[in-house]
Amino acid sequence: MLEIKDIKKAFDGKEILKGISFKVHDGEIAALIGPSGTGKTTLLRCINFLERADSGNITIDDISVDVKQAKKKDILEICRHSGMVFQSYNLFRNKTVLENVAEGLIVVKKKTGKEAEEIAKRELDKVGMLNHLSQYPSQISGGQQQRVSIARAMAMEPSILLMDEPTSALDPELSKEVLATIRKVAEQGVPVLIVTHEIDFAREVSHKVIFMENGLVVEEGTPREIFLEPKEERTKQFIAKISPADYQI
């Protein structure tokens, strides 16, 4: 479970996030959508302190942190209970596929090499990368790299998985394979907060859609509510712009 309350963040006096609050319940896939530059990625990065929000509260399961007073220890706790999948995969390039997934287990979770390898293999199997264990990131495709990065995040058994436009660096074909992987992850019941421009994906897989603009949540609801019966004028405009004319759910 993830709950954020009144997250605010400004860069050089310019307010990017103007007080964002929402909840992602257990087993829920929440898609964060909205025009570019509205702070979706910044919000995601504020949750695990890649950026430090100016104020607000972040709760992951039983860990609750006031951003203003967060100390190193709190930040580590938040990171250890959340997983992140990046737009550009960010795999460790000097480590093999297997080592990439085992790394966090060994270094952070203090598992033995053998335990870590077992878990890593199990997670890599789920994303269909068991045949590439000893390859390096530079030797596999972008889609494969992204699947490994999903396994890397999932191996840590996060209480919330944060995904920052996981398919936007991929061509449509590779995008498909990664989306299929995310669906599989979602079926395991891990709550996911995903920033995405894949409207079809958001519509089909997510339980909740959060529409954000100019640093504020404009509207949130089920995919049906947001895509077919949006209440806010701004949401209607956005949906109209991104949807094909014959859009149907």
Binding site: K72, R80, F86, N90, E103, V107
Partner: peptide, 26 residues
Amino acid sequence: DPGQLEAAHALGMTGTQKFMRIIYPQ
């Protein structure tokens, strides 16, 4: 590559762990 350091942060590595596992070898 700052991305790899961000990935290490997201995994919950401390500064020393980041240095020993990512920064120093690469």
